[in-house]
Write a protein that binds this DNA or RNA. Structure first.
Lengths: 324, 324
DNA sequence: TAAAACAAAAACAACGTTGTTATTTTGAAA
DNA sequence: TTTCAAAATAACAACGTTGTTTTTGTTTTA
C-alpha cells in the first residue's frame, strides 16, 4: 500500500509537501507540484480514507440503510441519488443489515449522514446515532427528519381529475391490506377523494392486488372484469400494476381510453415505455431525489431542516383519460 | 463523538487501559474492566472504525460491487452472504457505482476484500486494486479468482435425468438471446445435453422468454402451448420463469406431471413455496454462499485459492417428473 | 550590505485506536 | 518491616493524513 511518505521519498521532498501538492495547495511551487502528482500517479497512489477521515472528521460518505433486497420500488431512487451525490464528490454505501446494525456500522465508519429507507413506511424505534439521519417514508410525527411524497394527496388528485371529466365509477387497484403503510396511504387518499368529489365509495371500487408485481395487477384486473359494473376509470397504485392492468385490458379487447380511462401512480421515467401514453400522478422522480440529496447536504452542514418535508404530487393527464 | 479518552476521564484510568478493557484483554483487572464497560455503554461509545483500521490495517469489512440490474437472481445470495459474514464479525457494504469507482472507494476504505457481482457474467477489464478481489460469475480464464456455478452442467444433468425416464420431446424455456453470458451457458448446456442424450435438438425445443420475470415465463409458455408438438417435459431457466410456466399450465388445465414434467433451475429455498413440489437442478444456495464466504476469508488470509472455483450442480427429482 | 519581507519547504501536532514498553501498586516471602 | 516478583496500570509510539508553525532560502528595500 503506497502512502504519501513513499511518494515523498521518491520525490525527495517532505511528506507534508506531498500532502499539499496532492490537494493542489498554493503553498507548493507549480513545478514541484507537477512532479509530485506524476509520481503519485505512477505509483498508483490511493489516499487512505481512514487516515483522512480521522484527521478531517469527514468521510465524504453517505450511508444508506437498505433493509430489504426487494428494492424494486426504491431502486430508481437510489440509483439517482447515488449519481447526484457522486457528482458532489460523495460516496454512497449501502448496508442490507438490520437497521440497528446498519446504523452502528455507519457510526463506526463516521459517514457524514445516513439515509434510511424503511419498508413499512415509518420507523418505530429511535436508534442512537451520532451521525445525522434522514428518513424517506411517511412524515407523520417522525422520529427523524423525513422526506415524504404525499401519496394520499396524489390519489385524491387522481380522483378529482377523473371526476372533473365526468367519471363516477372509478376503481383503485393496489394493495389494500393495510400492512404496508405506504400503500395504505394511497387507499386512504382514494377513499377521501371519492367522498369529497363523488360523495361515496362503492365497495367494488377497490380492486385488491395480491402483491405489487405486474402479474398481480394482471390477475386482479382480470378478476374484476369478470364481475359486473365495470368501472369507467382505473387508478393504479404502481407502475408494475399498471403494466398488468394494460395487459389484462388488451386481452379482453378493451380500449384505453374508450372503454376505460387509466391513471397510474409512480412518476418515473419508465412510464414512457408503454406503447401508449398513460396519465401519471405522483412526484417526479428527479424532484424526490433532488430533495433527498439537498436535505442530506443540509443536515451534513448542520443546517436546520424541517422535520417533515412533504412533496406535492403532480398529475399529467393525457389521452389515456377521456371525458364521459 | 465519545472516544476512549472520554471514557478514561470518566473512569479515572488511562486511555490505554480503556482500550484493553473494551477489547476484553486479560491485562486489566476484572472489576476495573466491568466498570469501564459500563461507563462506555452509558456514554454510548462507538469505536471509531477509521482509527481502528488505521492502526490495525484491517477494517473487518467486505465491499460488494453490486450490479445495477438483474438483481433478482443475486438477491438471495447477498442476503445469505451478509448474514454469514456478520456472524464472523465482518461488515458488508454495497456500492452501486460503476465498477472502477466502486473499487476505488473500497480501496480508499481499505476493505479487507472485494466481492464482485457482474451483470454480464464476466469481467472484461482489469481494475487496479490493492485489496484482493473475488468475482462471482463465469470462470473462463477469469481475471480474478472466480466462483462459478456450472449452469451448463446443470442443464445437461436435467436433460439426462429426463432422457433416462423416457422423455424425448424436451423443451428449455429461458433467455436464448445470448446477451447474458450467464443465461447463454444454460442454453449451451441444454443443447449439449440434447445432443449427447437424445441425438438432436429440434428447433421448437427452445422456448424464448422475452425477459426473466414470472410474466415472461407465463407468456412464453402460453405461446408455446398454442403451437403444435407439445413437449412432454420442460426445463425452466429460473425460479421466476417456473412460476409463470406453472401458471400457464394451470390455466390450460394441463397436469404436472401427467401432461408435462418439469424441472426448474435455481436451487433456492423459495422453490418450496409452490403448491406442489417441483424438481430442481442447480447448486444449493447455501453451498454457493458458503463457498463465496470461505473464499473471501481465504483471500483475506492471503491463502492461495484456485483461480476458478466451479461448483457442481445437484438435481432433486420428485413427483413433478414422470416416466413415459 | 544588512535588515526586512516573502516564498517555499520542512517539521510538528493532532485525529482515535492498538500493541509494546515502562512504571507503579500489590502481596508474599524473607 | 524490607525485598522482590507478579499484577495492574500508565505512558509511549505508531498508523496515514491534514492544518499550523517553524525553518530555510531568496528577494527586495533602505
Amino acid at each position: 500500500m503506497v502512502t504519501i511518505k513513499d511518494i515523498a521519498k521518491a520525490a525527495g521532498v517532505s511528506y507534508s509537501t506531498v500532502s499539499k501538492a496532492l490537494r493542489d495547495s498554493p503553498l507548493v511551487k507549480p513545478p514541484t507540484k507537477k512532479r509530485i502528482v506524476t509520481i503519485a500517479n505512477d505509483l498508483g497512489y490511493q489516499p487512505n480514507a481512514a487516515a483522512r477521515s480521522l484527521v478531517s472528521k469527514k468521510s465524504n460518505t453517505i450511508g444508506v440503510v437498505w433493509p430489504t433486497v426487494e428494492r424494486t420500488a426504491h431502486a430508481a431512487l437510489i440509483t439517482n441519488i447515488n449519481e447526484q451525490l457522486e457528482s458532489l464528490d460523495y460516496t454512497t454505501l449501502l448496508s442490507i443489515n438490520k437497521i440497528d446494525a446498519a446504523i452502528n456500522t455507519f457510526n463506526r465508519f463516521q459517514v457524514d449522514a445516513i439515509l434510511m429507507f424503511n419498508e413499512k413506511g415509518y420507523i418505530e424505534n429511535h436508534y442512537p446515532s451520532n451521525v445525522p439521519i434522514l428518513s424517506y417514508g411517511i412524515a407523520k410525527d417522525p422520529l427523524y427528519p423525513t422526506v415524504d411524497v404525499n401519496r394520499r394527496e396524489a390519489m385524491k388528485l387522481a380522483v378529482k381529475s377523473l371526476a372533473e371529466i365526468g367519471h363516477k365509477n372509478i376503481a383503485f387497484i393496489g394493495d389494500i391490506t393495510g400492512k404496508d403503510q405506504l400503500q395504505e396511504e394511497k387507499v386512504v387518499g382514494f377513499k377521501e377523494g371519492m367522498k369529497e368529489y363523488l360523495q361515496d365509495v362503492q365497495k367494488d371500487s377497490l380492486i385488491p392486488a395480491p402483491g405489487l408485481e405486474m402479474y398481480d395487477g394482471y390477475l386482479a384486473m382480470i378478476k374484476r372484469l369478470n364481475e359486473p359494473n365495470r368501472p369507467t376509470a382505473i387508478i393504479s397504485g404502481s407502475y408494475d400494476l399498471t403494466k398488468g392492468v394494460i395487459r389484462a385490458l388488451n386481452e379482453r379487447n378493451l380500449s384505453i381510453p374508450n372503454d376505460i380511462s387509466i391513471i397510474s401512480y409512480d412518476n418515473i421515467p419508465q412510464m414512457n415505455t408503454f406503447d401508449r401514453p398513460i396519465s401519471i400522478v405522483g412526484v417526479p422522480n428527479e424532484i424526490i431525489t433532488k430533495t433527498i440529496t439537498n436535505a442530506l447536504l443540509d443536515i451534513i452542514d448542520k443546517k436546520e431542516i424541517p422535520n417533515e418535508i412533504i412533496l406535492t404530487p403532480e398529475i399529467k393527464m393525457n389521452e389515456s383519460c377521456i371525458s364521459i
